[in-house]
Design a protein around this nucleic acid. Structure first.
Lengths: 178, 178
DNA sequence: GATCGATGTATCGCAGCGATATAATCACCT
DNA sequence: AGGTGATTATATCGCTGCGATACATCGATC
């Protein structure tokens, strides 16, 4: 997840940790935290795996006075890895957290994979919707007033998301046969 | 979180792990996973902390043939701890994950604390809403079509949740001065 | 009598968060 | 000139919690 996001961002341009975090926060801050406690360990993991490399810090001699910062850039393996993650978009791709991140990189994602992710997400939300419906209409066992409210709100919210996804999918389709 | 949920459930009756998980899944499955990988370690943590104790397995001699199961029940300290968690309902209480869990135990929660949680949650969602609004109306830097869609959907969704919370709060108020 | 799904307990490795430490620079005020 | 606070920047620690997996027993169905 974090890995996917970092690779996606570095696809645009080499960056250092702080900037990566700022971009992520700006891009998806409303949906996910992206804390430093994950950022730096993940960067080192990617580095060890050879997916990113530290650019020589020398060429920043221009604007000196700055604090030491490590600029990372994608290796060819890193680019490959990102493409793989996209191509293998599977079940774990469509859960709440993951989906938002993928959507943020959609303009960089092949149309056919976009479609797969949108439809996977729709199915996932539909399943949750059915679960909520079933729970609400279930007779027998009385259900707590507050829990019922929670489920009602959840149901409405998933219904809206399905409608929204349908619009996105329709738009994709209409673009496909331009 | 998990701790809170387990203590809350055991408040009703002594239970063993599998049943706790089933109840949680039934109660909040649409919102959270509550996997075994957390359940058993948490139970042991609670046990070590003296908040729950294992009931002697002897008295299940009645329905024998069942597999060995460990039934846990709350200690007085456990009940105290649950009350503390409620009384100290703070900032981390109103984030997405936590709020649903708390709501599920609302009928067991004092009215004044219910109010604090609902209002805290509302403020939290309002803040997210403002962040999304600001992001969407910000001029300058062009924003990706898909990311914009995500934010639009997020904004609508938070607006709805605020309205929903307002209704819950109004209902609480009307009940307060019965 | 075989297989399948539910019941049941448990562990392992991993992802990711929140808090915190450290430190340099910058903008601003006095 | 000096102080103060926000911003830039990297990094670690402990903890929560998930997914996968393993193992074992039981009841039902075929």
């Amino acid at each position: 997840m974090f890995e996917f996001a970092l690779l996606g961002l570095l696809h645009e341009a080499p960056m250092h940790g702080y900037e990566l975090r700022k971009r992520l926060h700006d891009l998806l801050g409303a949906f996910r935290a992206f804390s430093y406690g994950s950022l730096y360990p993940t960067l080192r993991r990617l580095q060890r795996a050879g997916l990113i490399v530290e650019e020589g810090p020398e060429e920043s001699a221009l604007s000196w006075g700055r604090r030491a910062r490590k600029v990372y850039k994608l290796t060819p393996e890193g680019k490959e890895r990102f493409a793989d993650l996209l191509a293998n978009a599977g079940p774990q791709t469509w859960d709440d957290d993951s989906f938002g991140v993928h959507l943020a990189f959609f303009s960089r994602t092949p149309a056919e994979i976009r479609m797969r992710i949108l439809e996977g997400r729709r199915r996932c939300v539909e399943e949750r919707r059915e679960g909520l419906r079933e729970r609400l209409t279930r007779t027998g066992e009385q259900i707590d007033r507050y829990t019922r409210e929670l489920h009602r709100q959840g149901l409405e919210s998933t219904e809206r998301e399905v409608r929204w996804l349908n619009e996105l999918i329709a738009h994709e389709k209409s673009e496909q046969d331009e």
